[in-house]
Simulated scan of single mutants.
Amino acid sequence: MSAIVPGLSWSDVDLDELSAPLPSRVLVTGAGGSIGGDVVGLLHAYGAVVTALSDSWRRPSPAARVITADATDEGEMRNALEGTDAVVHLAAIPGAELAEPYQGYRINTDSTFNVLVAAGELGLRRAVIASSINAFGVPANRHELLPAYFPIDEEIPRELDDWYSLSKASDELSAQMAASHWGMTVVALRFPLTSLPSQIRARTHPLRHRQIREGWSYLDRRDAARAVVHALVAPLTGAHVIGLSAADTFREEPTTDLLDQYAPGVLRRRAFMGREALIDTTRARDLLGFVPRHTCSEPDPELIP
């Protein structure tokens, strides 16, 4: 087991938050990672029977069934999905700098395709997959680009320039295919920077231009897990891409001042109040019933080893 990443304590989970009961048996891939482990913990707190799958483990898992396997392995995936009602697919290489282009793109897209095909053929009706703010391509683009407009929404024009962004855009297309072919509901969540408040406050990314391109967006780990469980129960059909963000930016300056200084020529589709976020989360609110609760100005939550 590699270095332990402490998990969130869900001792005070709001059992009345969700609009419908969770699927009773859920597979979570990438369950050894930060968001994946948090999702397993929250599902366990809600009483779901969880199967946790990961190729490595950085914390103990409360899941009823723990499988060490690669999400690209067809046989292992079918075995893990047997007897489940829904799948949360979070396994991925989470950045372009973490793998060579061919290896990274293949692993990310193969795993998503494998999970969705196996789930569809086994008759599962709901899948939630991890996409990324990078899916529109601008944040990691090597050219001098800024988003076409603010706030960034799910329909913003793509400018794909790196393998990781392309893999996430491809995953969103795989979600559309699976929803059409098997009649599944597939929700692709576009996660921004996701971490604990103290780590977000300390954010000093050397690529300042990338911070601008992402609208200085972030999401608390607690809200990331909550968004996943909302996506598991939302009354939806078909495939949906949904952007996520905290309600504010991680910068201290008012949002309008940030745009005036760093992106004065970018179209603003509306006015921004105070430190208001530059990600449009209308779909998260209207389709999932999800509203973020936490900001980076708070103390860190209780953690467990």
Rank of each mutant, 00 (worst) to 15 (best):
V5P: 00
L8F: 08
W10I: 01
W10H: 05
D14P: 06
L15N: 02
D16M: 08
A20N: 02
P21L: 10
P21G: 07
S24N: 09
D38A: 15
V40K: 02
G41S: 10
A45R: 02
W57F: 11
R59H: 15
P62S: 07
P62Y: 10
A63Y: 06
A63R: 05
A64Y: 00
I67L: 12
T68V: 03
T68F: 02
E74L: 13
G75V: 13
L81G: 03
T84C: 15
D85V: 00
A92E: 09
G95M: 05
Y105T: 08
R106H: 14
T109P: 00
D110E: 15
S111P: 04
V115E: 05
V117N: 13
A119G: 12
A119C: 06
G120A: 09
A127Y: 05
I129E: 03
I129F: 04
A130T: 02
G137A: 09
E144S: 13
Y149W: 13
Y149L: 10
D153V: 04
D153Y: 07
P157W: 01
P157M: 04
E159M: 13
S165Y: 07
S165D: 12
M177W: 15
A179W: 12
H181C: 09
G183S: 09
V186I: 12
V187I: 11
L193V: 14
L196C: 07
S198F: 08
I200T: 12
R203H: 15
T204I: 08
T204P: 03
I212F: 13
E214K: 11
E214W: 03
W216Y: 15
A231Y: 07
V241S: 13
S245D: 03
E253F: 03
D260P: 04
Y262W: 15
A263M: 10
A263H: 07
G265Y: 09
R268Q: 14
R269Y: 03
R270N: 00
A271Q: 13
D280R: 06
F290V: 08
P292Q: 08
H294L: 04
T295C: 05
T295N: 09
S297R: 08
P299R: 10
D300Y: 10
L303C: 03
L303F: 06
I304G: 00
